[in-house]
């Protein structure tokens, strides 16, 4: 798994993909930071992090679209699968490489709170809690992207499919206030990827949301492994 992880991490930066993703994310999150904090003179960074969720929703398929689809298309999966690696090792290696690039990008955005600290005195634990929530929801987005990448041989289809899945989750979230049946509303609220970020945004660490995001990611990674094995048989 480590070999696959290292190779994939390097691949992001040997091709333009890693740079394009990081540039796009930093540009859009920078616009959000400028509009939400600098121009309005507000020190509340977690609202910016909340906007960054939507930025990552748009940019995350760039990270995941080629991970498994390209291997299948170029038949390089024959090398990986006949060398003794299991599908689990391959999927996890690729997932963690995307997660690693995401983590590096998150680290780069720390320049925004640093600017806020230079101009005022924002609440550090609140910001760290927000970052934790943002990282967890980002993990969930990446797992969805990996899953869609396991379903197809075409990178573009994988990217569009990942957008589709994430938009579906967003749409379900937007439907919640309009649902009149309380039990359906409760279920949607429980499953909502986006609403579960709220506790982190407002400074409280939520065990249930953390467990939810980890379980959500694990489930989509398990689906990815099953999809890969099903496609081979």
């Amino acid at each position: 798994m480590t070999a696959v992880f290292c190779r994939e991490c390097l691949e992001y930066f040997k091709t333009m993909l890693g740079y394009v993703f990081i540039s796009a994310f930093l540009f859009l999150s920078g616009v959000s930071f400028a509009a939400g904090n600098i121009l309005t003179l507000k020190a509340e960074f977690n609202a910016t992090l909340n906007n960054c969720i939507y930025v990552f929703m748009i940019t995350s398929p760039l990270l995941t679209m080629r991970l498994l689809s390209e291997e299948k298309k170029t038949k390089r999966d024959q090398l990986l699968l006949t060398s003794g690696l299991s599908t689990t090792e391959i999927v996890l290696g690729k997932f963690f490489s995307a997660l690693c690039v995401f983590a590096v990008t998150c680290a780069l955005t720390s320049v925004y709170p640093v600017i806020l600290f230079m101009l005022g005195s924002p609440d550090l634990p609140l910001i760290l809690n927000g970052y934790l929530g943002f990282f967890l929801i980002g993990t969930a987005f990446i797992s969805v992207g990996v899953f869609v990448s396991a379903l197809t041989e075409n990178q573009l289809t994988a990217a569009v499919g990942a957008y589709g899945f994430l938009l579906l989750f967003l749409t379900l979230d937007l439907l919640i206030p309009r649902v009149r049946v309380s039990w359906i509303s409760t279920i949607l609220r429980w499953f909502s990827l986006f609403r579960r970020f709220a506790p982190y945004q407002f400074g409280s660490f939520s065990v249930s949301s953390t467990v939810y995001y980890v379980a959500f990611s694990a489930a989509f990674l398990a689906f990815s492994i099953l999809a890969m094995e099903k496609r081979m048989s």
Binding site: A3, T15, R76, Q78, L79, S83, G84
Partner: peptide, 23 residues
């Protein structure tokens, strides 16, 4: 395999090191 499973962004040595690791 019929189509050599190569990673174009790697050098020949990097590729062989990678294959050695996954083996």
């Amino acid at each position: 395999p019929e189509l050599p499973p190569l990673y174009d962004s790697m050098t020949a040595m990097e590729y062989l090191r990678f294959v050695a690791k996954i083996k």
